[in-house]
Amino acid sequence: MFIFVQVGLVTVAFSKLGLTPGQGFLLLIATLLGSGVNIPVFRSSRLVPDFSLRSVRMFNPHTRMFTAPVQDRALTNQVVAVNFGGCVIPVLLSLSLLSRSGFDFSILICIAVVSAAAYGLARPVPGVGIGIPVLIPPLITVLATLIFVPGDLAPAAAYVAGSLGTLIGADLLHLATPATRKVLDAPVVSIGGAGTFDGIFITGILAVLLA
């Protein structure tokens, strides 16, 4: 982020989307500060392993009591939330860009391509979130944009496909399965937060710059 800000790439990227330098700077600050804000959507209860120490009587020639770990199933709550900086802002900006440039079927194809790639690349990290390589999704986004989207629409299409595609493929499709949420084993699962925030933000910025 320090390098991005120093060379002004973020401002250049937002200017290609039709934003003024002031608007781009405010959007950048809101995104960074918003990355620490998770808005709860719903709460789910599930059973998780709970190891406790209990006294167990072992029958042998010398009957004795042993302390041994016993696995139980404990009921716990898991909150599914949306990250303000990594989900809400990219979605709102994408909708704004689509309303100005018009929705084109080619953009939908790009979103589908990036979503499929992000889904294949993303991996759940227990206790942390979903991790995704930072540089591969932007390159896939740019290739899809150059192939399917004509010239003037390319920057907006690149941001929309890069941001929404990464959000859908890396987070939503993975978090939609209870098995993935069980692997994460975290009290709060954030859509657009944790490991995918960098991927969503940098994919959108780099895709616009390269488009």
Rank of each mutant, 00 (worst) to 15 (best):
F42E: 06
N38Y: 10
G36E: 06
Q71S: 07
G34K: 04
Q78V: 12
G18I: 02
F51M: 15
P61I: 11
L27K: 08
R43L: 07
R73P: 01
R54C: 07
G85P: 01
P61S: 08
L27H: 03
R64L: 00
T63G: 10
M58H: 05
D72M: 02
L26S: 13
T63A: 11
F25P: 01
Q23V: 13
A68E: 06
V80I: 15
G85I: 00
R46P: 03
F84I: 03
A81R: 00
F66G: 08
G34C: 10
T63D: 06
Q71I: 04
P69D: 01
T76D: 07
R57A: 14
A68R: 11
L19T: 03
N60A: 09
F25L: 13
P21I: 13
V37T: 06
V79S: 05
T63I: 09
S52G: 05
T76G: 13
R54A: 12
A81D: 04
A74L: 02
G22A: 14
R73V: 01
V82M: 05
A30T: 05
T20W: 07
M65P: 00
L26A: 15
Q23M: 13
A81G: 04
R43D: 14
F25H: 13
A74M: 05
V56F: 08
A68Y: 03
P69K: 12
F42Y: 15
A30G: 08
Q71A: 14
A74H: 07
G36N: 06
N83W: 02
V82E: 00
H62E: 12
N38M: 04
S44V: 13
G24A: 13
G34V: 01
L47T: 12
D72S: 15
R54K: 06
Q23A: 11
M65S: 14
P69Y: 00
S44M: 08
S44D: 09
F51A: 14
N77L: 12
G18R: 09
I39M: 14
L53W: 09
G18Y: 10
I29A: 15
F66H: 08
H62M: 02
R46G: 13
H62R: 09
L47E: 07
P61K: 03
T63C: 04
S45K: 14
A81I: 04
V56N: 03
Q71N: 11
G22P: 00
P61L: 07
L27A: 09
T76I: 10
L47C: 06
H62P: 03
R43H: 15
L33K: 10
H62K: 09
N60V: 00
H62V: 07
T31L: 00
T31E: 02
P40A: 12
V80C: 01
V79C: 14
R57D: 12
A30S: 14
P61H: 01
